[in-house]
Simulated assay, not measured.
Amino acid sequence: MESRWELGALPQRRTSLPTEIAASLAARIRSGEIPPGTRLPSEPQLAQSMRVSRNSVREAISVLREQGLIETRQGIGTFSLDPSRDAYFPVDVGIEGLTSTTEMIRRAGHKPGTRDYQLQTGVGDAPARRQLVLPPDVPMHLLERVRTADDLPVILCRDYLGQSHVPARVMAQYRGDESLLLFLQRECQLKVQTARADIVPVLPTARVAEFLGVSRRRPLLALEQLHYDAGGSPFLYSENYFNLDYMGLHVRRTPVR
Score class of each variant (00 low, 15 high):
6 E>D: 07
9 A>N: 11
11 P>Y: 11
13 R>P: 05
14 R>F: 08
16 S>T: 15
21 I>G: 01
22 A>N: 07
22 A>L: 01
25 L>A: 00
30 R>H: 07
31 S>I: 01
32 G>A: 02
35 P>V: 02
42 S>L: 11
45 Q>D: 06
51 R>H: 12
55 N>E: 09
56 S>F: 02
59 E>P: 00
60 A>V: 05
63 V>E: 05
71 E>T: 13
76 I>C: 05
80 S>N: 03
86 D>Q: 12
90 P>V: 08
97 G>S: 14
99 T>I: 14
100 S>T: 09
105 I>L: 07
110 H>E: 01
113 G>D: 01
113 G>L: 11
115 R>E: 13
118 Q>A: 12
119 L>N: 03
123 V>S: 00
135 P>Y: 03
139 P>R: 10
141 H>R: 09
144 E>W: 05
148 T>R: 09
150 D>L: 00
151 D>K: 11
157 C>T: 15
158 R>M: 10
159 D>Y: 01
160 Y>E: 04
161 L>W: 00
162 G>N: 01
163 Q>I: 13
169 R>G: 08
172 A>C: 03
173 Q>C: 15
180 L>Q: 06
181 L>I: 04
182 L>H: 15
182 L>M: 13
184 L>K: 08
188 C>W: 00
193 Q>G: 14
194 T>N: 09
197 A>Q: 11
202 V>Q: 03
205 T>D: 06
205 T>A: 03
206 A>F: 00
207 R>L: 08
207 R>E: 14
207 R>M: 10
209 A>I: 10
209 A>W: 10
210 E>Y: 01
211 F>V: 07
218 R>L: 05
220 L>G: 02
222 A>N: 08
222 A>Q: 06
223 L>S: 10
227 H>P: 00
231 G>L: 02
232 G>L: 06
233 S>H: 13
234 P>M: 06
234 P>V: 04
235 F>C: 10
235 F>P: 02
237 Y>A: 09
238 S>F: 03
242 F>E: 03
248 G>V: 10
251 V>R: 15
254 T>C: 04
256 V>Q: 12
256 V>D: 13
257 R>N: 04
